[in-house]
């Protein structure tokens, strides 16, 4: 298979396969827990569930007020990684073109320079978090193989995307970039990366459980 055929496959059937696995799997991962349901709470409520649940979804995205230095590091690096990743993913014009050509919706892009900065910061945050994962005793204890695997899978699209415009061979790097993205898409439903959706149900449950008792979680 020459590069063109490979690229064509990756932009076609390969992408289709990855998107099917991703969408099917992620929807499954979100809905399966929720559909397991929970017992009706027979205690008299002090507060609602919906509102507090939604509030917690939003509230846990905000910067926590009190943190230890260790906590500060995790939160700041986590923020930078997530924001950098999302900015790169959502505001690079080439990525918007993908969405536009698939779903017909689009929005303004950010200049490539800004995207590069976001990607570099995101990579730096990932690197810092990796070092933290292998040096922090807590993180080392609770980490398993998957944590390192998804770290690599998340890093690769950022790296290859950033390398795309510097690469001697654009096409080869584009191929590597798309492969890394499709691997990531396929991995998401099978790994902790499913938190990209399940965090919403988790936060909702957390907020709802507390809200029922009149506590703002």
């Amino acid at each position: 298979m020459n590069q063109h055929a490979l690229l064509f496959f990756l932009r076609g059937q390969g992408l289709k396969f990855a998107v099917i696995v991703f969408t099917f799997g992620l929807i499954y991962r979100l809905l399966h827990p929720v559909l397991l349901g929970r017992k009706k709470n027979l205690a008299a409520p002090r507060g609602g569930e919906w509102g507090p649940g939604m509030r917690t979804i939003w509230h846990r995205s905000l910067f926590p007020v009190r943190l230890t230095p260790r906590g500060h590091f995790i939160i700041i690096a986590g923020y930078i990684f997530h924001l950098g990743f999302l900015i790169t993913l959502l505001f690079l014009s080439q990525h918007i073109e993908l969405v536009k050509n698939t779903f017909g919706i689009y929005w303004p892009a950010l200049p490539p320079g800004a995207i590069s900065i976001a990607a570099v910061l995101s990579i730096a945050a990932l690197a810092a978090l990796f070092v933290h994962r292998i040096t922090d005793p807590v993180k080392r204890l609770i980490s398993d193989f998957q944590d390192y695997l998804v770290w690599v899978l998340t890093l690769l699209p950022l790296l290859t995307g950033l390398a795309l415009d510097m690469a001697a061979d654009y096409q080869r790097m584009l191929i590597v970039h798309i492969i890394s993205v499709e691997l990531l898409l396929i991995a998401i439903p099978f790994t902790k990366l499913a938190h990209m959706l399940t965090t919403f149900s988790s936060r909702w449950y957390n907020g709802a459980i507390a809200g029922y008792k009149g506590v703002k979680a």
Partner: peptide, 21 residues
């Protein structure tokens, strides 16, 4: 004891280690 919240919580943990603090 497994229910919606439990399954959702287990699914979501990213091993960030913040709970330790």
């Amino acid at each position: 004891q497994i229910d919606g919240p439990m399954a959702s919580f287990f699914s979501s943990c990213v091993h960030c280690g913040l709970c330790a603090d």
